Simulated assay, not measured.
Amino acid sequence: MSGAELARLIAAQVCLHATMAGIRLAAPLLALQQGHGAASVGVLIALFALTQVFLALPAGRYVDRHGLKRPMAMAVTAAFVGALLPLLWPAFPAMCVSALLTGGATGATVIALQRHVGRAAQGTA
């Protein structure tokens, strides 16, 4: 793996994580501003991790079958849609879907990158 390729992968992970973190910060504030209670906001925050919990094993199997590019493209698409959705429709259901999409995209990206970098590593440390 070349240095440029590794830098692109790191930049992609940073951007996807920043998308999820930004939504994770903004969505609860928007929900509170719209008058939703603390329980609703707690559920919203929990949704960021929920997709990762249920997606971990299937995502790992998918990455094993298809390599890096297809899962990364799917994760970028999911994060993009997840970031765009509450912008176009600033309602609580859209924020919940956004949390699921951006959280899942981040988790799937980590799985894909760990597999790819682990297989590309040469030598022992």
Rank of each mutant, 00 (worst) to 15 (best):
M74H: 08
T109W: 06
G60T: 01
V41N: 11
R70L: 12
G104R: 00
L84D: 09
L29M: 11
A105H: 02
P28A: 06
A39E: 14
P58H: 03
I23R: 14
I23L: 15
A94E: 10
A56Q: 00
E5V: 13
A7S: 14
F80K: 05
A83E: 03
H17I: 09
G103V: 06
L55E: 02
A38T: 13
A18V: 04
H116V: 04
M74P: 01
T19S: 15
L113I: 05
A79G: 02
A75E: 03
H66G: 04
A21R: 10
G37W: 13
L6S: 15
F54K: 06
A11Y: 08
M74L: 15
L113G: 02
I111S: 10
L88N: 04
F92K: 03
P28R: 13
Q114N: 07
A83C: 11
A49I: 01
G82D: 00
V81S: 09
R8Q: 12
A79R: 04
I111Q: 07
A46F: 08
F48T: 02
V81N: 01
A78D: 03
G104L: 04
L101M: 12
Q52A: 12
G107W: 10
P71M: 10
L30Y: 05
L9K: 10
P28F: 08
E5L: 14
F48M: 08
F80Q: 04
M74K: 03
G107V: 06
T19D: 12
P58W: 00
P93K: 07
A31T: 00
A11C: 11
L25G: 05
A59H: 00
A120W: 05
